[in-house]
Structure formats: C-alpha cells, structure tokens
Simulated assay, not measured.
Amino acid sequence: MTQEKQEKYYILSAQNPERMLLYGMPDLPDDMNNSWMFGQTFTEEPEQPIHVEITEGFENKQLLPFFDEPPIASQAFVDALIEIGVDNIITYDVLLHNEDYSVTYEGFKAINIIGLIKAAGPGTVYLGDSKLIDASIESLELEPRSIKGLYIFRLAESITTIVVHEKVKRHLESKGFHSLVFTDPGDALIL
C-alpha cells in the first residue's frame, strides 16, 4: 500500500522593521456584507483606484511587494501568484499616498482572497475559548481535506491569517520577493 504525500501549507505574512506602514482599507460599498477578510466576492464593487493612505512619517520607508494587512501587493507579486496557478483572487487598482498626495505610488493591487476555509484540524492548540474568526492559536494543525486543493486562502478560525500551498511558497521565493515570512503552521503563534 502506497502512502499518499500530504500537501504542505504555510502561513504567509510580511515582516520588515523598515517597512512602510499603511492605514487600513477605506470602507467598502455595502460594508455590512463586504470585507477584505470574509473570503468572498463583494456584493458591490469598490471604486478604483482604491486610495490607501501611508501613515505619517513612513512615506520614505521601504515599499513591500506584499502587505498582509491591509491585503495589498505589487503587480509583480500578483503576477507571480497567477503564474503558479492561484485562481481564487480578485484584484483592484490601488493608489498609495500620503495625506496631501505629495508622495504617491501606483502599480499596487488590493487583493480579495476568495476562500475562507475552516481548516484547523483536531491537533490545533487554542489559547482561548474562541475557535472561529478571531481565535488565538498556539499551534495550528491543518486538515488538508478541508482545503480542497486551494493554493491560497484565509483561515476561518482566524480570518486575518493567510495560508499558502508549498508550491506558492517556492515560487514566490524563486522570484526573490523580500520581507515575506512563511511559517510552518505547527510553529505558528496566531494572536
């Protein structure tokens, strides 16, 4: 009997002490039913470009290819996701700017990841009572059958957590994108 190789996934985040800081996304139309964190298509599309303000004092800090909060990426990063086979994202043009628009950056996309998956397996160690939407997790065990072959998705137990397939991890690393962190779910501390 042959043993089937288990798919490997990682938690994707962006970390860089010299990073540019961005305020959150502006409210979406019909924001009671729309959120970048819900993992579903919007009921009403946002106007483009979406204006995202750079935090005062961080205008000249390092632009990242990927910001996990808010979910914004360079066009090259989005292209890399599509190249590797990611087919469950919807992107929107973004203009990054400071308060008076004296500093602006184009060529960025807001990413709506379609897929909010309840993927925590029985070995997951929770730090509190919450086990959905905002769970604090000491160690995450993913249940691959729940994932159903997605290359990228949001974790339903903690909706700010983005999970990617090993294939995506390897492809993004091969492209040389800086400031990306891929954490093994078993080593994750999700707060």
Rank of each mutant, 00 (worst) to 15 (best):
K109R: 15
N34Y: 07
V86Y: 02
M25V: 08
I50M: 09
F77L: 10
I50Y: 04
N16Q: 06
S174H: 13
N60V: 06
S13I: 06
I11T: 07
G107R: 07
L116S: 10
T43M: 02
S35L: 03
K109Y: 06
E166R: 06
L95F: 05
H51G: 07
Q6D: 05
E141M: 03
F42R: 03
A110E: 06
D187V: 05
L63M: 10
I113N: 00
Y10V: 03
S35I: 08
S13T: 15
I11K: 02
H178P: 10
L96V: 08
I11N: 02
I152N: 00
K61V: 01
L127R: 14
L150P: 03
K8I: 15
K61W: 07
E166M: 04
L150M: 13
E7A: 14
V103G: 03
R170L: 08
A14S: 15
G24A: 14
Q3F: 12
F38G: 00
V78W: 01
Y23I: 05
H171I: 03
I54G: 12
T161E: 04
R170K: 14
I114D: 00
Y126Q: 06
K109L: 10
L189K: 14
K118L: 13
E7S: 10
E83S: 11
I137D: 07
I137M: 13
